[in-house]
Amino acid sequence: MSVPRFWRKQIARYNLVGTRCKKCNEYFYPPRNMCPGCRREGEIEDFKFTGKGEVITFTVIHTAAEGFENQTPYVLGIIKLNEGPSLTSQIICEPEEVKIGMKVKPVFRKLGQAGERGMIYYGTKFVPDLC
């Protein structure tokens, strides 16, 4: 991913800043600039999510996506945030540990890098929330 393309959504990735429609009170992460429910009538504003949520489904990836070869096996999941929206993220735990319904919280990690010379991409992943 190119530098400007990543940088544009950097705050969203670092700090889980998504959006909310003031009209229907629906929350969006990844952020949306148009409310799919209210469309032109919607009123979108930024919203910072707590990052608390639970695992809806998951997989353990053994054949990695390009750029993720050094991480296998890695756990990928769909996480439903407490405020409502769902997102896709790696879950940092041992493969045996992850369960549907497991509570998670956010951590700051490297998402990837553009090769040895390129930019390092940071953002949010999730870990089991044992508290």
């Binding site: 991913m1 990836i61 896709t88």
Partner: peptide, 14 residues
């Protein structure tokens, strides 16, 4: 979704 699935390491089998 390259920006919100692919970047996290999602593959189609995944």
């Amino acid at each position: 979704d390259r920006e919100w699935e692919g970047i996290m390491g999602a593959t189609f089998p995944g």
